[in-house]
Amino acid sequence: MAEFKKSKDKVIAGVCGGIAKWLGWDTSLTRILYTLLTIFTAFAGVIVYIILWIVMPSE
């Protein structure tokens, strides 16, 4: 059940916009939660973001 990177709702690559749409959440809330998760996991979220940027199909 893959979601697409959002081309209109993006700041860097549209990954958080795609995740937000897939979960049915607000994009801003998703970005805030993803940022906090990245900080609290010693920046492992940056690696996950880059992988999702490569793997997620564009809209």
Rank of each mutant, 00 (worst) to 15 (best):
Thr30Pro: 03
Thr30Val: 09
Gly17Trp: 02
Phe43Ser: 09
Pro57Gln: 11
Trp25Lys: 05
Glu3Val: 14
Thr30Leu: 02
Thr30Cys: 07
Lys21Met: 04
Leu29Trp: 03
Lys10Phe: 09
Asp26Arg: 08
Ile39Thr: 08
Ile51Leu: 14
Gly18Asn: 11
Leu29Arg: 02
Thr30Asp: 01
Met1Phe: 11
Val48Glu: 07
Lys5Val: 01
Val15Ile: 10
Val46Asn: 03
Cys16Ser: 10
Val15Gln: 07
Ser7Glu: 15
Ala44Glu: 11
Lys8Pro: 00
Met56Pro: 07
Ile39Arg: 09
Leu52Tyr: 05
Tyr34Ser: 14
Ile54Met: 13
Ile47Leu: 15
Ile51Arg: 04
Ala13Pro: 00
Gly17Gln: 04
Ala13Arg: 05
Trp53Ile: 04
Trp53Tyr: 14
Thr27Leu: 12
Ile50Pro: 00
Ser58Asp: 15
Val11Arg: 12
Thr35His: 12
Tyr49Val: 01
Thr35Val: 13
Glu3Arg: 09
Phe40His: 08
Ala44Thr: 14
Gly24Phe: 07
Ile19Phe: 11
Val55Asn: 02
Ala2Arg: 12
Lys5Cys: 02
Val11Pro: 00
Ser28Asn: 13
Leu29Asp: 02
Gly18Ile: 05
Val11Ile: 11
Gly24Cys: 08
Ile50Cys: 05
Lys21Asp: 12
Val46Pro: 00
Gly17Lys: 02
Arg31Ser: 05
Asp26Leu: 06
Phe4Glu: 07
Gly24Ile: 00
Lys10Cys: 05
Ile12Asn: 08
Thr35Asn: 14
Leu29Pro: 00
Tyr34Phe: 15
Ile51Asp: 00
Met56Gln: 11
Ser28Glu: 13
